[in-house]
Design a protein around this nucleic acid. Structure first.
Length: 558
DNA sequence: ACCACATGTCATACA
DNA sequence: AATGTATGACATGTG
C-alpha cells in the first residue's frame, strides 16, 4: 500500500488515529458504519456547535482589536493564498461573514445550501469533526460553499464514475480511492452514492492537488492547505474501511501497488476468494512468525492447542513452528498420526475444500480452512479486515486473534485432524449423503471419531439453540398469558363489584316494596297487620300470600 | 474481581 | 441399534 506522506502532523492527527482505532473496534464487534456514524455524528454536531459558537464570539472580540492584521490577511486572501487559519485572527471580514452565515447551516445540513448536491446528511460527521481545528473546518466549509469548487469536484467525481472523460489522466491515481468509497455507499441513497461522498471525501485526499489544482487556480484558492490536514488513508479507514471488498470498479492503475490492483480484480461473486483474503491480510497468515493463541479454547473432550494453532509441517509452516496439542480423548485420537497431520496439512486442505467449490489455485497458497471459514461465515466482514487498507499495526494482532477465534473448536479440530470435509457439511448433510461422503474417503479412527463428534455436537448445538429459543418463547408466552389473566381477574373483580352493588340496590328496592305493600294491607276491621305477626310470602308463580309468622313457622316445620 | 448473560457442550431421556 | 431431538446442568467467554 502506498505510503501517503502527511505534509504536517497536525495536533488532530492523534485524535484521528484514536477515532480510527475506536471505529475498528466497533467494526470488529459487528457494528455497522451507519450505526457508528450516526451516534458519533450526534456528538460531533453538538461539539461542533459549541466550538463554533465560542469561536464566533472570540472572533468578534478579536476582530475589533486586530483590524490591522485582519486587513493584511484580507490582502492575502485576495492574492489567492488560502492562509492557514490556525487562529481566528486569520479570518478576514468576509470570511467571518461567510462563517457566520454558514455555521448554523452547517450544524444542521452540514453545508451551505449551494453544496447540497455534494454533501449528504450522512457525511457531516466528517465535516464537523470536533477534533479538527475549528478554523480549518471553517475554511473547509468556505471552500465547499464556493460554486466553482463544487462544479470542479462534481466533474471530478463524474469522471471517476465513468460518466465523463474529462480529466482522465489526472484521476487515475485517484481511482483506487474511489473504488474504496463508492461501494461503501450501499447504505446511502442512490443519489447520494452517485453525487455526494466521493468528491466530498476526496477533497481531503493527498492527491487533491494534482487533480483539482487547475480548476482551483481559476478560483485563486490554495486548497492544499485543507487537504494536507487529512491524510487520505485516515479518511478512507475512518469512513469507508470495508469497501475494498465490495469494489469491482474495473481496471485500476493504482500507485498503491498490487493490493489495490488485486482488489480491483476481485470478482463480485464471491466477493472475496480465500486467496484474496490471504493476500490482503497484512501479515495475517504469511508473516512467518509464531502466532500464540492463548485464547484457543481447550475443550474438555476436545483438543487443546498450544500456542500455534495455524500450523503445518515446519518446512511448509505458514506460521512458524508449533503443533497441535490435545487433551483428553482427542489426545488419543491424535496419537494415530500426528506427524502425518503436520506434514500433509498444507496439501490436504486445498484438496479438502476444493470439494466445496473453492478454488484450488487460491487455496493452495494459504490455510484453506481459514479461508473457507472466512468465506462461509464472514463474507462481508472479513474482507474488510483483510483489506490492505486496514493497516494500523496496533490493530493487526487483535483483528487476527478475533478472526482466528471465529473458527469454532470443531473447525479447528477438523483442521488439526485434516478432516476432508467442511464442518458445515459434516453437520448438515442428510444421513445418506453424509454416509456417502464418508465412504468416499478413508479416514482413520481418530478422524472418524472426530467427524461423529462434530456431527453430534453440531446438531446438539442447533438443538440447544432451538431449545433456548423455545424456552424464551415460552417465557414470553407465559408472561403474556399472565398479563391476560391479570386483566381477566381485574375485569371479573370489577364485574363482581358491579353485581354486588346491583344486588344491594335490588334488595333495597325489594325491602321498600315489601313494606309498601305490607303497609297497604288491612284486616277485616280495617286495621293494618302487625309486621311481627305476619309476613308476605310469594310463590314461584308470582302469587303473594300474607302468612302469619307463627303459622309460617308451623308451615316450615311441616 | 465479580456478576450477568450468551453460547457451547455433555449426559440423559425419549422419539 | 442408530440417529436425531429435547433439555437440564455445567463450563467458558464476554461485556
Amino acid at each position: 500500500m502506498m505510503d501517503i506522506e502527511m505534509p504536517k502532523m497536525h495536533p488532530s492527527q492523534q485524535d484521528m488515529d484514536l477515532i480510527d482505532i475506536l471505529w475498528r473496534q466497533d467494526v470488529d464487534l459487528g457494528a455497522g458504519r451507519e450505526v457508528f456514524d450516526f451516534s458519533y455524528r450526534q456528538k460531533e454536531v453538538e461539539l461542533r456547535r459549541q466550538r463554533e459558537e465560542e469561536e464566533e464570539k472570540q472572533k468578534q472580540r478579536l476582530r475589533e482589536q486586530e483590524k490591522a492584521l485582519l486587513a493584511q490577511l484580507q490582502l492575502d486572501e485576495e492574492t489567492g493564498e488560502f492562509v492557514p487559519r490556525s487562529a481566528p485572527l486569520t479570518l478576514t471580514n468576509t470570511t467571518n461573514a461567510a462563517v457566520t452565515q454558514s455555521a448554523p447551516l452547517c450544524l444542521d445540513a452540514s453545508v451551505p445550501p449551494s453544496t447540497d448536491l455534494m454533501m449528504p446528511p450522512d457525511i457531516p460527521a466528517f465535516t464537523h469533526n470536533p477534533l479538527l481545528p475549528g478554523s480549518l473546518d471553517q475554511a473547509w466549509m468556505e471552500l465547499l460553499s464556493l460554486p466553482e469548487l463544487q462544479q470542479c469536484l462534481n466533474m471530478q467525481m463524474q469522471e471517476s464514475l465513468g460518466m465523463d472523460g474529462f480529466m482522465k489522466p489526472s484521476t487515475e491515481a485517484q481511482d483506487p480511492n474511489y473504488s474504496q468509497y463508492l461501494p461503501g455507499m450501499d447504505h446511502l441513497s442512490s443519489v447520494q452514492t452517485e453525487v455526494c461522498p466521493p468528491e466530498y471525501i476526496n477533497t481531503y485526499d493527498g492527491s487533491f492537488n494534482t487533480m483539482v489544482s487547475p480548476n482551483l487556480s481559476q478560483m485563486s484558492l490554495n486548497v492544499p492547505e485543507v487537504g494536507a490536514e487529512f491524510g487520505p488513508e485516515e479518511l478512507n479507514e475512518l469512513f469507508y474501511p470495508e469497501m475494498e471488498v465490495k469494489v469491482n470498479s474495473g481496471p485500476l492503475t493504482s500507485d498503491e501497488g498490487s493490493t489495490v490492483s488485486q482488489l480491483a480484480e476481485i470478482p463480485s461473486d464471491p466477493p472475496v476468494s480465500p486467496m484474496d483474503l490471504h493476500s490482503f491480510s497484512p501479515g495475517t497468515f504469511s508473516s512467518g512468525k509464531p502466532e500464540p493463541m492463548s485464547e484457543f479454547p481447550d475443550s474438555d473432550s476436545g483438543l487443546s492447542l498450544d500456542s500455534s494453532p495455524h500450523t503445518s509441517s515446519p518446512g511448509k509452516s505458514l506460521n512458524g513452528d508449533g503443533y497441535f496439542g490435545f487433551s483428553d480423548s482427542d489426545s488419543e485420537e491424535m496419537d494415530g498420526s500426528p506427524g502425518d497431520m503436520e506434514s500433509d496439512y498444507a496439501e490436504i486442505f486445498p484438496l479438502v475444500y476444493l470439494t466445496d467449490g473453492a478454488s484450488q489455485a487460491s487455496l493452495s497458497e494459504k490455510p484453506p480452512a481459514e479461508a473457507q471459514q472466512m468465506k462461509a461465515k464472514n463474507p462481508k466482514i472479513e474482507p474488510a479486515e483483510a483489506s490492505g487498507h486496514s493497516k494500523p499495526p496496533f490493530t493487526k494482532d487483535k483483528q487476527k486473534k478475533r478472526f482466528e477465534a471465529r473458527l469454532s473448536r470443531d473447525e479447528q479440530r477438523a483442521k488439526a485432524l485434516q478432516i476432508p470435509f467442511t464442518v458445515d457439511k459434516i453437520i448438515n448433510l442428510p444421513v445418506d449423503d453424509f454416509n456417502e461422503m464418508m465412504s468416499k474417503h478413508q479416514l482413520n479412527e481418530a478422524q472418524l471419531a472426530l467427524v461423529r463428534d462434530i456431527r453430534r455436537r453440531g446438531k446438539n448445538k442447533v438443538a440447544a439453540q432451538n431449545c433456548r429459543k423455545r424456552k424464551l418463547e415460552n417465557i414470553v408466552g407465559l408472561e403474556y398469558e399472565l398479563d391476560s389473566l391479570k386483566e381477566e381477574k381485574e375485569r371479573l373483580m370489577k364485574e363482581k363489584s358491579q353485581r354486588s352493588t346491583s344486588l344491594r340496590e335490588m334488595k333495597q328496592q325489594l325491602s321498600t316494596l315489601y313494606h309498601e305493600v305490607f303497609g297497604m294491607l288491612r284486616d277485616e276491621h280495617g286495621k293494618p297487620f302487625s309486621p311481627n305477626e305476619y309476613s308476605l310470602q310469594h310463590t314461584s308463580d308470582g302469587t303473594v300470600f300474607l302468612v302469619p309468622r307463627l303459622k309460617k313457622t308451623l308451615v316450615k316445620n311441616n
